[in-house]
Structures are given as C-alpha cells and as structure tokens.
Design a protein around this nucleic acid. Sequence first.
DNA 1: TTGTAAGCGTTATCAA
DNA 2: TTGATAACGCTTACAA
Lengths: 340, 340
Amino acid sequence: MHEVAARAGVSIKTVSNVVNGYQYIRPATKERVEAAIADLGYQVNISARNLRRGRTGIIGLAVPELSLPYFAELADSLIRAAEARGLTVLIEQTGAVRERELEVLSGQRRHLTDGLIFSPLALGPQDAAALHVDFPMVLLGERIFGGPADHVTMNNVEAARAATQHLLDLGRRRIAVVGAHEGETMGSAALRVQGYRQALEEAGLAVDPALVGEAGLWHRATGAETMERLLDSGVEIDAVFGLNDALALGALHVLHARRIDVPGQIAVIGFDDIEETAYSSPTLTTVAPGREQIATTAVDLLLARIEEVEPDAPFVQVVTDFEIVVRESTLGEQAVAAPS
Amino acid sequence: MHEVAARAGVSIKTVSNVVNGYQYIRPATKERVEAAIADLGYQVNISARNLRRGRTGIIGLAVPELSLPYFAELADSLIRAAEARGLTVLIEQTGAVRERELEVLSGQRRHLTDGLIFSPLALGPQDAAALHVDFPMVLLGERIFGGPADHVTMNNVEAARAATQHLLDLGRRRIAVVGAHEGETMGSAALRVQGYRQALEEAGLAVDPALVGEAGLWHRATGAETMERLLDSGVEIDAVFGLNDALALGALHVLHARRIDVPGQIAVIGFDDIEETAYSSPTLTTVAPGREQIATTAVDLLLARIEEVEPDAPFVQVVTDFEIVVRESTLGEQAVAAPS
DNA sequence: TTGTAAGCGTTATCAA
DNA sequence: TTGATAACGCTTACAA
C-alpha cells in the first residue's frame, strides 16, 4: 500500500479510501491511485484488514458430515447464500460426536470467523449451557428448544403427520417407522415419531410398538439394518416411513433385495428430498423441507447478528415450509411422471 | 496478552513463548503464565497471528459443487486430512463455470488462504497460463496435463480399460458409453473413452460411434437423458459404461423405468464408487478411485509447498490406485453379497 | 478532499 | 531464560 501511495503521489490513507470505495475523492486522484494499483498488481492484505476491523468475512458452518447428502446439499445452498452476501464459509465436520460439537462452540476457529451456523446432532439437554456463546450463532435443526440463539427449523411434527397421513390416505394401516430414537424427547427423531403417532391416533389407529424401528445414525446402512430387523420380526407391514431419506433408501435397498414389491406390497416415504430420491428405483416419495429457504434465512439471521442491526433483538425461531413430494414409492410407476 | 503478562508478572514475549511451546522457559514461569491464561480465559487472536506470521492456517478447496456426491465425499476426506495436519478448509464452488474457475485463481480469497486444492472442470488448454500462480496449489483430476503445479490424478485410461474389460469378460459386446465429450482431447471424459476404445480394440472389436453417448454435465439427469437417447436410437446395447456414477445411476433409472433387466439384458458399470452405488437397485458395479489416498496425498503435497520443505522441487504428478468394485449391476443379484 | 499518526494483537530481533 | 521494542499492513480519528 505504501508503494501504491508513493507511485500515485498520495498518502496511504488515500489509497485505503480508494480501495474501500470512500465517496469524497477527487476523480483524478482516484484514477491515479487505481492506475498505480493496477501497475503494481496490488491486493489488500486481508489479515491486516481483519486485525484492524475485527471482522474476517468468514462464517463457520458446523455439520455432522458432508458425505451425508442432506448436509452436502445444505452446505451447497448455504455457501451460495453466503457468497451472495459477500461472506465465505469455513466448514467443520463434527461427525455427530458430542465432544466435537462442544469443541465447535469453544474452539480456536471461532476467532477466525464472524459467526457460526451450527447443525448439532449429538448435543443433549445437559449441554444447553454450552450454547450460551458470546459470538453470533444460528442453530439449524431440531436438537435444541428455547435455545439461547436464533434458530431455523421446520415443523417436524406437522410434516411427519402429513407424511403418515399420505400413507393412510393410500389405505395403508400397518405403517412401520425406521429411525426412531428411544427415550429421546427432543430432536428430529422424537418430533417425527410424534407426528407419526398423531396421524395414527387421528385415524383411530393404535400405535404398535413392534412397528417402530430404532436406528441411531441416520445412514443408508442403518436404514437397511433396521428394515431387515423389522421384516425378520414377522410383524405385518404395508408401509414404511423412513425418518430421513438415507434411512428410507437403505430400507428400499433391503426390500428390493428381498423381492418385496414397492409400493405394491409395501409403500415407502422418506424425509429431506435429497436429489437421489428422484433417481432411485423406485423413485422415493419424501418430505421436502425447503432447503433454499433454510439456507437464506440462516445466513440473513446470522448477518443481522454480526452487523448488530438490532443489538438486543430477542432470539427468533423461524419455522420453514415443507411439502410432500409424491413419487413412485407410494403411488406406483404409472402414476408419476419420470424426471428427466 | 498484555493482561496475561501483567497477571503472571512477565512480559508479553514470555506469554507468547508459552503459547507457542517455546522450549527454554523455566517450568515455574510457564506454570504461572498458564495459570493466568486459564484465569482470564485468554485465547490468541488468530488475525493478529496471521498478520505477523504471514500464514493463516486455512487452505482453499475449489470444487464444482458439493451437491455432486463425489465432490461432497472428496471434500469430507480432504477436510479430515487437513484437520489432522492442523489446517482448516475453505470451500469455494465453481459450478464448473470457466469464469468462476478463473476467478478462483486470482480472487481475493487467495489472500485468506495459504494454498489451494483445485479440481477444475471447465478450464481448457487456452487457460494453461492462468494456472501459473504464485501461491501453493495442488490440482486434482484430469483436466490439465504438464500443468505448472503439483497434480494428483488417477490412471483414467487404465481404469476405464479395466472397467470395459470387466464387461467384455462377461461376454458383453455392444457396450455403450454415457458421458462422452466430443472434440475434447483432455479431461476425464476423453481419457475414459480412450480406455474404453483400447479395451475394445484389444478384444478385436470395432468402436461403434452410435454407442458413444454425449453428456456435458455429469449429473444423474444428464445420464438419464443420454440413456434415453441411446435406447430411442434403436442401437443394440448389452452393457453401459457410465463415465461416472451419477451418469450410471441416471442410466439405471431409465432402464428401470423401461423395465429393462439389469444386468440380464443390459449390464451397467459406473466410475467413482460414491456411497450411493452400494444401495441403488440394483447395486452398481463401479471403479473406486481411492478417495482417501487422493485426499491425504493432495494435502501433504500442498503442505510441503506451503512450508517450502524443498523450495524448488519440481512439480510432481501422483497417480493413485484404483479398483473395480463388482456389484449386482454387472453380476446379478445372486452373485454378490448385499451390504449392510 | 487528503494527510498524519495511532493502534489492532501478535511474533521476531536482539540484547541482557 | 526473559524483556524491550520494532514490525506485520491496514483502518480510522482527527487535523489540515
């Protein structure tokens, strides 16, 4: 910057002003400075700017793992939303491990970022205190209620109720769940099972515990295992509600391997609307949670906190929309137009 | 840091020494400083350190998009590898758009990072000059040859030859390709088609141009479209080589929709070994490129450049191993043990 | 409209 | 083994 100033015959302050688009600069001066910048190929040193400004323009994104398609697609949307607002995203993977999720809240990386978008999966009620952080943070997902931070979530209960209702409307009565977390009272699993129960009760059906399959991790592999356990138990099943798409796709895999017709014998619905669901065989009916809306809302909320638009605004909870996307796994192959 | 120094009764230099694990500190002094750090909950200011050290501890990762499972899984591995070496990863999405790929090489973000791992998809021979950058960079993929940077790649020709050979070994003779890029002479598409041709020629078979299906983007949707075009053309086909898994899965989707038995009528093989291939119906035979090896190699190469272990070391090209993973889409359902 | 000078929180140099 | 002091490159009062 000194070199640029010398070459343009001005002070470094003026160079700084030009670089930062300060208004009151004589056009001639500005031109000279810009010429000097171009000649020397000067670029501002971001570290120095960060130090002085106390901001980095980077926001952290903490997710379980990018190899889970839902989080990969979410990260994609968040990166785009952040970029549109001049922010860069630093991704941290927690592996859904409690210790790592706690680290995210206190770690060194927080000094590198202006704020954090955090999708916790392992934190429990006992960790509520750790969420009282002194930096801007937006929580994603359903893990925390009344949390001490802005929070973007969807109406899980209602969405799960609608998904179950969709199966009931098709005449299914023996609807199994894949992915329940026994003993949990908060988090996506608990809420979605709650919606499932509600729908059944409203239809005047009892909830058969034998139909509720546990799966700790929500991966394809655990979905497959749970589906096998359910089938092996001999319980009667005419539909499956996978609490996320990965679980549902794992279940679909097992049903295919056992030559069980989907949706003829068993209809399947998932949750998340990851891209893969439009291409599986059969294609998977699922709940679309409005990923873009979640991403832009989260970034906007975080940016408002970072810029202290309203310093003492109370923490908000934004509930996003959802939609049931009907595909072959519940309606059959004739009824749904193939994509592509 | 000043406060810590005051509390411990030492100079800030000593605090700095303790923080950085400098060797020659009297244990008593060290203890006092550490106590003061704990009391005050002090944490070093990374921006200041970056400014002074001229390094940020962040490396950039530029990929087309995270919603493509291959790149999501690659990013996952790279983030883990970087973390194990004390580095943080900043992800940039280029959307496989040439302008954005060029931006990555010159953009402001480069000042935020110590180096770049770059997986270009759109740059062509005319952009070779832009790759002469003055910061540490490691290239991934097959887009550039003799590039002016370290380069991690796999033997695409050989891998594609092996994939085609696998189909030939099964007795298939009318092997279609999905994903070719006409007119291109470098890049994964060209190399993989080359391997395909080699295998056919070695088997004494002619290459039928009608069997080579174009697909610009390597997504499920384009794979589906290309498969439909091939089928509609009426050309005889008994096997399909998807140049990546997304294309192959898109093709699989169309074959399923048209009630064409896989692998009975048409066998299918993909390329990349994304997780989804182990759960599709049928599961997909594919080429596994050794993702972990690619990730750790890339990070190690980059770190060596950043740390200038050997300042003038010539650029290296590391060729990673591959393996054919045989699943139902070529062998049938009886022959392969199901996962889970 | 532009310049001067202070200071952001570290680390590096060199002396003690 | 430790301390004083000078950078690192920028932004920002404040002054001119």
